[in-house]
Amino acid sequence: MNAGHAQIEAILAQLNRVILGKDAQIRLCLACLLARGHLLIEDIPGVGKTTLAHGIAKTLGLSFQRVQFTSDLLPADVLGVSIFDRETGKFRFQRGPIFAQLVLADEINRASPKAQSALLEAMEEHQVTLDGQSMALPEPFFVIATQNPQDQVGTFPLPESQLDRFLMRVHLGYPAAAAERELLSGIDRRDLVKTLQTILTADSLRQLQESVLQIHVSPALLDYVQALVAHTRRAPGANAGLSPRAAIGMLRAARAWALICGRSAVIPEHVQAIFPAVVEHRVRQRGSDEVAASRLLEAVPVP
């Protein structure tokens, strides 16, 4: 536990050096990965989404692939293709970029729904099926997708069913003034990423993920999570509440957050910390685009 927490502190410290002034977002990203969830980063270009993904891959010691989603991207470009080998006279499978431990799907909402769904199925099943043949994806397997805000031209917004597969959605946002000055004065971030140290091995990452499941959850806290989930379903103006899958993911994310905070049990504050990231892309409100997570939180008393 303590060793695990020290590792986490080191990871956070290192990532904070790359992305300045975004401690909370970085913690959320890490919690999402420790909870074995996929991450959606939504923001305008140029705030460091790709850099963050790079940094995480490097720090956690994961194999990294990046796919730039464009409107003419085909599923094969993501998953891979079978190519006829003249020498052997057989089809040989050429693996696509998805066969990596951390896949960065850049600007996922620029691709056609067909290409999007190829990725999203792989995310859910942790395997790829082509020509009737199933191939397991490497373990651990994370997808960090980025998307531009949807009011930009030429995008295919992800349908709600697809959004549900991302455990969290995080906004990075512009850096604060001090962080931005430091950013301007410092060296290029991409160069910095190359210098990062690998802190975790595949084994220790798995251990950390295991210890997320060891975090204690009391009945009172289960009540609270359930009350929150139930409230999203009947809150005035909400179109659709959280799915049971989302509820399970929320509890797991809260455990990961407790682990990051160095606690052995989940307390309501942990749930509240991850709640906006888990809920806001799932629960849509009639009229406006999204539901304010803080309003939902305020409506449910802590047991």
Partner: peptide, 9 residues
């Protein structure tokens, strides 16, 4: 205390 506030917050 606000009703929705956790103890530590």
């Amino acid at each position: 205390r606000h009703p929705h506030e956790g103890a530590e917050a």
